[in-house]
Amino acid sequence: MSEIQENGLGAVETKARLLDLKSLDSPKAMKLYRRFDGIIILILFMFLILGVQIQFTLTAGDWDYWIDWRDRRWWPLVAPFSLLLFIAPFTYGIWARVRLPIMATAVTLLLCLVSWLSRYLNFHEFTHFPLSFVFPSTYIGLGILLDCALAISRSLLVSSLVGGGLFGALVYPINWSFMAPYKVPVEFNGMLMSVADLMGYQYIRTTTPEYLRIIEESTLRTFGGSVTPLTAVFSALCGMVIYMIFLWVGSWINGLDKYTKRIV
């Protein structure tokens, strides 16, 4: 109450806000509020599906389409970067206005569901790839960690450091549980290949040649070959930074719930 008056709201608005608050005790109003909840969740989630699909497929899609793209150096860096960037502005808005730490889980879960449907329809039914070659990765656990970090710490800053960091760092481990079998070695025509490489070779992709893959190439400076952990640490850093930057973008966007008199 006192805060509202301090904010310099007019008497009419103050009275109206009191009424808003009072409506929370009205079963009739609450019924309508719940009806609204159902609709807004449907609308928001469906648009999120489109948003994350456009975002992810056009920034990290190739790594997610093909198992022979999921390498140790680029995929664990690109995928969380792309996702955190998309999640942050939504998290900011929903956290600031309704205090729900759900957007990271929602985005990653919806991405997973739509990816499965899309891979089945487009890569399996339409273009005949076996699902074992084009199944999506999972990022749901990372989304839960990011949301929980926010729910526990109740701080966007702490959640970017802890949650953003974990989101970046754990991409490889969380997917390893079902990705490991595709990295088993095979001998083919006298050359060493992983099962994934072999699938990439056998299942013909006319305009996705082998060289197109943006994957780890050998270097002199491997620092003892610790590619995966090093990438995880760097990815954690990227995760923290990009998440913070786009939280800031989110704060700007969410301040724009304004009206204008004319189109500039």
Partner: peptide
């Protein structure tokens, strides 16, 4: 809601059909 349903259709059907198409054709 209607637009959202259409958004879902685009996301699940259209977006990656183009990816699949271009990468094999």
């Amino acid at each position: 809601t209607v637009m959202a349903v259409w958004a879902g259709c685009i996301a699940s059907n259209a977006v990656e059909s183009d990816a699949a198409w271009h990468q094999v054709t």
